[in-house]
Computed example of a mutant assay.
Amino acid sequence: MDCAYFDDLRCTSCTLMGQPYAAQLDEKQRLVAALLERHRGLSWLPPVASTEAGYRNKAKMVVGGTVDAPTIGILDADGYGVDLQACGICSPGLRAAFPAISAFIFRARLTPYDVPARTGELKHLIITESPAGELMIRFVLRSTEALPRIRKHLASLLEALPQALVVTANVLPEHKAVLEGAHEVVLTDADTLPMRVNDVTLHLRPQGFFQTNTEIASALYREAREWVRELAPASAWDLYSGVGGFALHIAGDAGEVVGIETSVEAVASAEQSRADASLPRLRFAAGDATAFALAATRSPELVIVNPPRRGIGATLAGWLEASDARHVLYSSCNAASLARDLDAMPSLRPVRGRVFDMFPQTTHAEVMVLLERA
């Protein structure tokens, strides 16, 4: 894949841009295998390749420029907007929506936030596209000052983008390097975006997490279901369960299943999906994964962990090492923290692994490893 933004040095976020995709995938597999090479019994399945371009279902863009000529993209070194509306890794549906959103910013007079001057209202634009082509559009604002104008002109945005199912305003009053604030104002009747993945419908709320690459997420969940089906555990936990992707996919093959997630929003989404699918032996609860495990009176047969980049940490790894869990399914977006966590669980032997290329054109990948008690 080639990118004019990358070639012109306007955006260098995709550090592998321009390199042959087959070589990117081979190198990711090599690096992951090298990090886990001391585990001699680990058998690697072929890596799962993604489409090279248009794979991102979510765009997290900084809004810059002026209200008459807004930019949607990133900021340069001086804090001024660089327009990336034609970004090639964004899905075609996202790219097609940017011009209408840019016109709405002008119409509703949403003054872009000027980082150096600390003035203006509209900070970020966060858009997610579902597999069905529906959109969730979130305007991240410094205050609620612009809300009346957004409400006044919302009909014009929905007319231009009839696929926009959910539109919200998120309020981030602080001047700091974060993407969004805690307060969300839903402006449409719908407040969740249905994400159909394989035969499971996940309900994404505005502040919920969903994998960036729907195609690869679908492959990841299918593979997890196949591995769990072979094990047929009587009980399972899905720790760091998010909106329930793993738990909902394995619910028919794992007896009693519990999903634990810190985000109340994500748990509400997962519970909605569980109710829709009529899965009485699956439940979700809000809480810290490590605290939940430490407080448990018994271990499940299978534990699924899908932590953030920092990994599960020494305390949870220690609990898993000492537990009666027969298998652990570990899905990681950071092979370095995965390797560290595996070293802390010597009784759980990695037997099968696979790389899923969730992030083409970058050095990042998702890795899933099945562990069994020695």
Rank of each mutant, 00 (worst) to 15 (best):
T201Y: 08
A374C: 12
A291P: 15
L220H: 01
T168C: 12
E256F: 06
E256N: 11
G54C: 00
N213V: 15
P46W: 03
A224C: 06
R40I: 08
A296K: 04
L157G: 06
P99F: 12
E223F: 02
M368N: 08
Q85L: 07
L35V: 06
Y221C: 02
E372L: 07
N170P: 07
N213Y: 08
R151F: 05
V267P: 00
R38V: 14
D68W: 14
P300K: 10
E129Q: 02
T290I: 02
M136Y: 02
E121N: 05
R10C: 00
P233C: 08
V67C: 10
R310H: 09
L371R: 05
R283L: 06
A77W: 15
G120S: 05
R107Y: 15
L348S: 11
G287P: 12
P206T: 10
W227S: 01
A317W: 09
A33S: 10
E37K: 14
H153A: 11
I260Q: 07
T192V: 06
L179Q: 13
E301Y: 05
N170F: 01
I137G: 00
L172K: 12
V166R: 01
N198E: 11
V32K: 10
R283V: 06
D238H: 09
D324I: 09
F98H: 12
D114Y: 14
M61D: 00
E215W: 04
